[in-house]
Design a protein around this nucleic acid. Structure first.
Length: 650
RNA sequence: GCUGCCGUGGCUCAGGGGUAGAGCACUCCAUUGGUAAUGGAGAGGUCGUGAGUUCAAAUCUCACCGGCAGCACCA
C-alpha cells in the first residue's frame, strides 16, 4: 500500500496508507474528534468523511462548531431524512429534489393527497426516529445506465428525468442511510444522529411546479428550518415573529393607513393617515426632481388601443392590461381603450407636440402617473404588489452623448433620495444585452458603454447580470437594503431607442437634419404604494417625524387643561405640524398607551402644572421618560424637526 | 393563474345541523386621574355571495368572490 501525507490546517503532517478516509483520520487524531467530525474539506473540496483519500492532500476536519459547514450539512441531511420519513410513511410518494435554502431546506414530493398539518407532525416524529437510529451515511459512484435502471425499477420518474439532465461524463453519486437511497451531489453528515433532533421544524407546505415551470406538474413542497441548537431555532422563530410584527398590512390597520376590499382587488383605499404619508413622499419627490431639472406633466389614464398597438404594448403586454369598451349607446363609434399600464407612450406624445431642437435636450419629463396592471390574483400582496399604483416615473429624451451624464445625475438623485428616506445601502445590477433584442451590436456597445462608464465614474460597485437587459436596451436596477436586511428592487434606469422609433420622436440637430432621440426610462421609488409598504416595514411603523401621519398628540391630564391643549394644537397646526388634541375623559396612561401603539412620535401631556407654567410634558415614541419644557421651545424644536430632509438648511 | 388553508359584530378570534359567543374598540353613567389599559351599564352580526341537501344550514355539498402562504408571473 502506498503511503500518503495528510497536511492539517495547523501545518501538522501525518502519514497514512492510501485509501484511508477522512473519518478515520479524524478518529486517529483524537477519539473525540472522531466522534464530533461531520465532514471534511480535502484540497478545498467539501467532502464526506467516508470517502477514501488516495493522494497527498490538505485536509480540514469539520465539526458542528464550523457554523457554515455544519448548517449546510444539517439542512441538507434534514432534507434527505425528511424525504426518507415521507417514503417510510407513504411508500408510493415520489421524490424529486430537496435543496438547502436560507435557514433551512425544502423538498418537493409528488403525492395525490395534500399533506396536512397533522401529516407534518407525523413526518417530524418519524424524522426524529430516523435521527435516533444514527444510521451511517454511505455513498457510491454509479454508472449513468445503472442509476437510470435503478430509478425506473423503483418507479421514480422524476429522478430519471434529473439524471437525464446531468451532463454526460459527470459522476453520479448515490447516498444511503438505512435502506433509503437518494441521488445527490453530497456531501453528507457521517450518520443521521448528527442532525440535532430538537433544532429543526417543518414550517409549511405549499405547491411548487416541477422544475419551476408552470406548464409542468405541480408538486407538494414541504419547507423546514434547521439549526445547530434548540436555542438557535428558538431565536430564529422569534425573529420570524418580529418580522411579522412589521408587516405593513398589520401596521396599516393599527395606524389606520389604508384598506383594500374585494370590490377593487389590488387597488388601495387610502385613509387620511396613509394619504398623509403618500403626500409627504410625493411632495418631497416633486421638490427633489424639480431641483434636478425635471418638468412635471400629467397624461391620460384611459387611452385608445391605437396608441398601445403603436407602442407594442397591445402585442406584448395585453394580458396585463385593463381593457375598456365604451357603451355603444353613448358613443357614435365603438372604441376600445386601455387603462395605461405604463406612462412611456404618453410621454412620447407630449414630447412630440411641437418641433424639438437639440437645444431642448436633455428634456426630462416626470409624472406621478397612475397606472393599472392586471396582476395575477395570487401575485397581489398588500401594498407591495397591487393592480392600481402610481409611479414616480420619468423619461429623459436625450442624445447618445448625453446618456452618460444623465445616468450619473440619476444615480446621484437616487442615492440622495434613498439616504433621505433612511436607506443608506443599495446595490446596483447592470443588465446587458439579451439574446432576444433589437438594434445593432454597435448601438448596444454605445448604450452599454455609456451606462457602465457612468456607474464607474460615480465609483460605485455593481453586479453585471449578462443577458438580463430589456429587449430595447440595457438597464440598471437598484436594490435597497432595509433595516432587517431584506432587499427590495425599487429604482430602475433603462436606455431605450425602440419607443422613440415606433412613436416617431425626433429632434432637429445642429446639422438641421432630423434625428431620433434616445429615451431613458427611470424611477427612483418604483411605485408609491410599494415604497410606502417598504417604508412602513423598514421603520416598523415608527416613521421619521416629517413623514409621520400624526406627528403630535396633545393630551390633557385633567379636563381643566383642555383649553390649553386646544390652544397648543392650534399653534402647532399654524406651524404646519400635524397635531391632534386628546381631551377625552381618560387617564393619561390610557392615552399614552393608545398613541404609542398608534406610533405617534411625540405626545405632549398637559396637566395643571403645565397650564400654570406655560409648559408641556414631552414624551417621544420609544422613550420611557418625559421632559417638561416651555411650550415655545417645544414649538420651535418640533417645527424644525417637521422639515423634510431636502428642506433642512445645511 | 396553480396548490393548500381561511372568510363569524369596527378589530382579533372561539364555536359549529335546531333562540349567535369572548376580549378590545364604540355609546352612556360615574370617576379629574401625572406618562403603555379606572369602574359600571348599553348598543352592535340575515356567520363572504349564490345554489343544493335537509323538517331545519352560520354549521354539510358544489360553484363563485376575496384573503393568506408558497409556486409561477413581475419586458
Amino acid at each position: 500500500m502506498a503511503q500518503i501525507t495528510i497536511t492539517l490546517p495547523d501545518g501538522a503532517q501525518r502519514m497514512y496508507e492510501a485509501g484511508i478516509t477522512g473519518g478515520e483520520v479524524a478518529a486517529d487524531i483524537s477519539k473525540s474528534l472522531g466522534k464530533q467530525a461531520i465532514a471534511c474539506t480535502l484540497d478545498g473540496q467539501f467532502r464526506d468523511l467516508s470517502r477514501p483519500i488516495e493522494n497527498d492532500a490538505q485536509l480540514a476536519i469539520h465539526t458542528i462548531k464550523d457554523e457554515a459547514e455544519a448548517l449546510e450539512l444539517i439542512r441538507h441531511d434534514s432534507a434527505h431524512i425528511m424525504a426518507r420519513a415521507v417514503q417510510e410513511i407513504w411508500p408510493d410518494v415520489k421524490v424529486t429534489i430537496g435543496p438547502v435554502i436560507a435557514n433551512g431546506w425544502y423538498y418537493d414530493f409528488d403525492r395525490e393527497e395534500p399533506f396536512t398539518p397533522e401529516d407534518l407532525e407525523a413526518i417530524e416524529k418519524k424524522m426524529r426516529d430516523i435521527i435516533t437510529l444514527r444510521d451511517p451515511v454511505r455513498t457510491e459512484t454509479w454508472e449513468r445506465a445503472r442509476a437510470i435502471a435503478h430509478y425506473e425499477a423503483a418507479n421514480e420518474p422524476f429522478k430519471v428525468e434529473l439524471i437525464d439532465a446531468i451532463p454526460e461524463g459527470e459522476d453520479l453519486r448515490m447516498y444511503w442511510h438505512g435502506d433509503w437511497q437518494d441521488l445527490c451531489r453530497g456531501p453528507h453528515l457521517a450518520h443521521t444522529g448528527q442532525v440535532p433532533a430538537d433544532a429543526f421544524k417543518l414550517t409549511r407546505v405549499s405547491g411548487a411546479y416541477w422544475r419551476g415551470d408552470s406548464k409542468n406538474k405541480q408538486l407538494q413542497r414541504i419547507y423546514g428550518v434547521a439549526f445547530r441548537t434548540r436555542q438557535e431555532l428558538k431565536a430564529h422563530l422569534l425573529q420570524v415573529e418580529e418580522a411579522a410584527k412589521r408587516d405593513h398590512r398589520r401596521l396599516a390597520k393599527e395606524m389606520d393607513l389604508f384598506h383594500l376590499q374585494e370590490e377593487a382587488p389590488g387597488m388601495v383605499f387610502w385613509h387620511p393617515n396613509g394619504w398623509s404619508i403618500y403626500r409627504g413622499l410625493e411632495e418631497y419627490m416633486r421638490r427633489r426632481q424639480i431641483e434636478d431639472g425635471y418638468k412635471e406633466i400629467r397624461t391620460p389614464q384611459v387611452v385608445d388601443r391605437k396608441l398601445w398597438e403603436a407602442s407594442g404594448h397591445w402585442d406584448k403586454y395585453r394580458e396585463n392590461m385593463f381593457i375598456t369598451e365604451i357603451d355603444e349607446e353613448h358613443a357614435n363609434e365603438k372604441r376600445t381603450n386601455a387603462l395605461k399600464p405604463m406612462n412611456c407612450p404618453c410621454h412620447v406624445q407630449v414630447y412630440n407636440q411641437g418641433l424639438k431642437s437639440y437645444r431642448d435636450l436633455p428634456l426630462r419629463l416626470a409624472e406621478f402617473g397612475s397606472c393599472h396592471r392586471y396582476e395575477a390574483s395570487g401575485a397581489m400582496h398588500g401594498l407591495m404588489r397591487v393592480r392600481g399604483f402610481v409611479q414616480d416615473d420619468g423619461h429623459i429624451f436625450c442624445t447618445q452623448e448625453q446618456i452618460q451624464e444623465e445616468c450619473a445625475k440619476f444615480i446621484q438623485l437616487l442615492s440622495r433620495v434613498y439616504k433621505d428616506l433612511g436607506f443608506d445601502e443599495f446595490k446596483i445590477k447592470f443588465s446587458t444585452r439579451p439574446d432576444q433584442r433589437i438594434g445593432t451590436d454597435a448601438e448596444w456597445d454605445v448604450t452599454e458603454g455609456a451606462l457602465e462608464s457612468a456607474i464607474k465614474s460615480i465609483g460605485m460597485d455593481y453586479e453585471v447580470d449578462p443577458g438580463e437587459g430589456a429587449f430595447y436596451g440595457p438597464k440598471l436596477d437598484f436594490k435597497l437594503t432595509d433595516a432587517i436586511g431584506r432587499e427590495w428592487q425599487c429604482g430602475t434606469f433603462q436606455v431605450d431607442s425602440q419607443l422613440p422609433e415606433r412613436l416617431g420622436a425626433e429632434y432637429v440637430g445642429e446639422d438641421s437634419d432630423k434625428h431620433r432621440p434616445f429615451m431613458l426610462h427611470r424611477a427612483v421609488l418604483g411605485s408609491f404604494e410599494r415604497f410606502i409598504g417598504i417604508l412602513i416595514e423598514n421603520y416598523a411603523g415608527k416613521l421619521p417625524f416629517w413623514l409621520a401621519p400624526r406627528q403630535v398628540v396633545v393630551a390633557s391630564i385633567v379636563s381643566d387643561a383642555d383649553d390649553f391643549v386646544n390652544a397648543t394644537v392650534e399653534m402647532l397646526r399654524k406651524q404646519g405640524i400635524r397635531a391632534e388634541a386628546d381631551t377625552r375623559n381618560e387617564k393619561i396612561n390610557y392615552k399614552v398607551r393608545e398613541h404609542s401603539l398608534g406610533k405617534v412620535p411625540v405626545i405632549l401631556a398637559v396637566g395643571r402644572q403645565e397650564v400654570e407654567n406655560g409648559t408641556v410634558s414631552m414624551r417621544r415614541l420609544g422613550e420611557k421618560q418625559s421632559v417638561v419644557l416651555p411650550r415655545e421651545d417645544v414649538l420651535a424644536t418640533l417645527s424644525n424637526e417637521a422639515l423634510a430632509p431636502d428642506q433642512v438648511a445645511r
